[in-house]
Design a protein around this nucleic acid. Sequence first.
DNA 1: CTGAAAGCGCTTACAG
DNA 2: CTGAAAGCGCTTACAG
Lengths: 360, 360
Amino acid sequence: MNSKDIAKIAGVSRSTVSRVINNYPNVPPETKEKVLKVIKEYNYVPHASARMLRGKRSETIGIVIVDLKRDIHKIYDNVYFGPFTTAVIDFANQLGYKVLVITVYKVKDYKKVREVFYNKTIDGAIFIGIKNDDPDIKDLIEAGFKIAVVDQEIRDDEEDPFNKSIIVNMDNVNGAYEATKYLIGLGHTEIAHITGDMEKLSGFARLEGYKKALKEAGIPFKSRLVVKGDFVEESGYKAAYKLFKKAKPTAIFASNDQMAIGAMQALEEMGYKVPEDVSIIGFDDITISRYLKPALTTMSASLLQMAELAVVNLIKSIEEELGITAKFVVPVKLVERESCKRLNISKEKEDTEYAISMRR
Amino acid sequence: MNSKDIAKIAGVSRSTVSRVINNYPNVPPETKEKVLKVIKEYNYVPHASARMLRGKRSETIGIVIVDLKRDIHKIYDNVYFGPFTTAVIDFANQLGYKVLVITVYKVKDYKKVREVFYNKTIDGAIFIGIKNDDPDIKDLIEAGFKIAVVDQEIRDDEEDPFNKSIIVNMDNVNGAYEATKYLIGLGHTEIAHITGDMEKLSGFARLEGYKKALKEAGIPFKSRLVVKGDFVEESGYKAAYKLFKKAKPTAIFASNDQMAIGAMQALEEMGYKVPEDVSIIGFDDITISRYLKPALTTMSASLLQMAELAVVNLIKSIEEELGITAKFVVPVKLVERESCKRLNISKEKEDTEYAISMRR
DNA sequence: CTGAAAGCGCTTACAG
DNA sequence: CTGAAAGCGCTTACAG
């Protein structure tokens, strides 16, 4: 079944069939109806490749999930990429776009991405999990492809390639600042920080927010209270052990929830109770966090909103064929749960003060 | 940049360029090298649509995530579809295939699926979250498209359309049987069951396994101990309340972990302790389950293995162009954690017996 | 070993 | 309002 067959059966030319399919105005209602009837009857759908070859868009966007320095299948149970990807698919579908998912576990996997761009399989793509200033992505942007990136520094330099892409970030600095300030507000001064992957904006920006809050409160920054992680659970676990070998913080700000969970595990093994002995706050508000005992206090941004901004603006940029260069910073808010408490000055005051930090 | 340009620059014909790209044997090494150099230099990638129009496969499979009777965005934080989808993408990519993700929230969304099949965007598809005997999928199979389905009854009827597809299931009956038997082995006889969606194989097959275990142990089946759920957390929550209004089971077998989690929440609200007052076992072993307090005992099957079976056999069926009709039943095993304990005959014996049920 | 030519299934100026 | 024809960028018999 192709347009020629349909034309023959409907008693018109292929041109007319095409006009009907593309909903052109210059087709009289009766002709249109006649053709539509045949199309329906034969379950005819125009060959996508033929249309694209004639210059139609593929109406497909890619979502590129980058997870370097990890083995294959590790995003398998990733609690962050999954929800974001689903949200992207849903918003894109709503706008009539299909979504191709591409995973990048090694730098050379970027070849897959270049291919689908150059061979016109996709009209544009959203990148997540990327490090800051990634040269492979930079090249693609410079080649003129439509791209949205999540978690990328917004630079002042007008000439920077990333300025030609759509950027969607969480308000990392402010979120980290608020998280740290919250702990300070509970009376803590010995506040540790488990950092994220420092090659990513969310890694170094959250450290910056932590420092900013300390500085503002007049608490001296101590490098022994900062230990490096890389955003996965295990790194949080190891970081907590390393931390308590050289220091005795009363509170920890972990750069994401997964590391907070790993740290809580280590804390439990070392015999510290959360939040009685150590308060801990995370970042991201992943699904698991509310099921933990104690439920994890954390900083939350709307992944849904981020996905929507990326999708809507990417598609706008594709369809208007002009380089949209929007930049978005999504707000982050505190989700108080059970993993932080007021530092107890004296044992007697504990109960009442605990009650205060318990309200959700 | 197209093959004509490359041909001109390399000083050969388009035919030869094509032969090099497709790695045909009848090209002398020098010619091949010359052409390859130009291709590399100009970053040339053949237009995917043009190749497909000439009959090449799209080398893209679809993964269709069906989630009917729910609002949009609900699979957003689905703990089951996400990991499975990622696993499918990874296995497909390994075999050189791209993956298009399609969500179906309403029956009419199947239109999207038909479209990508008929317009040749995908070579085949894997369906998950489907109800048993879905007519929309049946039509697609009968139209001759290559399809793999997860969670679909394996029928004896040779003529049944689904017999022309690839089927991958968990061993639902046996898993449910083992779960129930495990509770019986702990001394329970008042064992409730929160069912899954009864339109799905995993829903009714797990009920069947539950019944089978009771029967074998000579425990009479009581309909007041069975309450309907539909595989989501909230339904487990409601089911638990309904259950305890009319009965006092000492153990619950929930048809999946999400409902078990909902039930645990309700149990806590009603003042029952898990596992001291009520034992509970789930099914699926989702990521959250091991973080719960008490950690959830559950039945686990390898999603990775299921995804691999579906992908590998679908692609085999696409490439060999013959209707592969493989059927797979993936084994399910018990994961003992903390949510079940031996029914205490007398309070005194409790401690020692609890220790037994505690080993993981 | 290599090139000229046909054709995959569409869309779209062009002519009427 | 409608059709004949060109052409998108490839691949592949065919001929040499």
